[in-house]
Every structure is written in C-alpha cells, then in structure tokens.
Amino acid sequence: MKPETAILATLFAVSDVGWVFEQATSEEGPDQVAERIRAHMSKVNQEMAKAFPLRPHLLVEESIRTDSSQFKPLIQAFASPVTAPMCAMIYAVLDGAEVTAIEFSYKARESVSLSLTVQYETGEAATFLSDDAWDVEVLRHFGIMKLGNKPVIDGYYAFRKAAE
C-alpha cells in the first residue's frame, strides 16, 4: 500500500468507514480504491468551483486531512455512491453554508428528482440537482429541527456507531 493510500485509509477508518479499504480485492486493491476515490474528489472540487466561482476553497482532500472530524460526513459520503454534485453540497454545508431549499420527488420504478439549494452568509447560493436514486441517501443526514413551529433543515451529520 502506498503511503498516501495509507493516509486515506486511516481517515476512512476513523470515520467509521474503514471497510472501504478493508474490502479491497485482488481486482481492486487499496491503491486502486484510493485512486478511484481521489478521482471522485477531483470531480467534487470541480463542482465546488462551478457552484461558487468567487469563493476560495481548500481542495477536498486537503480539507479532510486538515480536519477529519469536521468532514467525517463527507468522508462517509465517499464510501457510498453519492454523486459529485451532492458531495459538493455536503462540503458547502460542512463549510458553514445554510440549507435554504430542498425539493424531492419520486415515482416508483420511474424517476427520482432531488434539488438542494445552499447559501453562504455572503449570499452566494447554488442549487445542486440529481436524478440518481442513491443521492436520496443525503436526506437522511440532515439535521431536521423546528424553531417557532417552523421547519429548520440544516447541518449535515455523520452516522454514528449505535454504542456512542
């Protein structure tokens, strides 16, 4: 295993998704897994640059290395088939952006549609779209709350071990 793969594997392990690397097979060894994940991270970087062109961001890998605790939910997303636009949305929320709108529709065995808008305090906003059923997973991670009897859906949270 290459040293940079070992670093990524450690980050995934501390984020409770170490199985991504533990399941490496002869067809796709740990280094190939890391390569695939890095390619996905690169797409997420592109999505962030497209969504918030004026806003400077750390690259995804740099961010998760700097603070794996803050970005744990994003690391968990890389362990699932969540698409790059949705990973970019997750990054923005973990970076302090507010979830301002969610639209979701589903027709059995026909279609799924997900639209998520997030906004930074500067007013910069972006809408992330998906018609991939796996992306619906992200809805399970939002903080769903009420304030003044009105809905507040904000924050993106990692799955936790049941014993925690």
Binding site: D16, V17, W19
Partner: peptide, 9 residues
C-alpha cells in the same frame, strides 16, 4: 442518525 452496518460488495 445511527451507523448503518456496511454492506459488502
């Protein structure tokens, strides 16, 4: 939120 057990490929 609770951790979902991993599904093996």
């Amino acid at each position: 939120n609770r951790l979902v057990p991993p599904s093996y490929a």
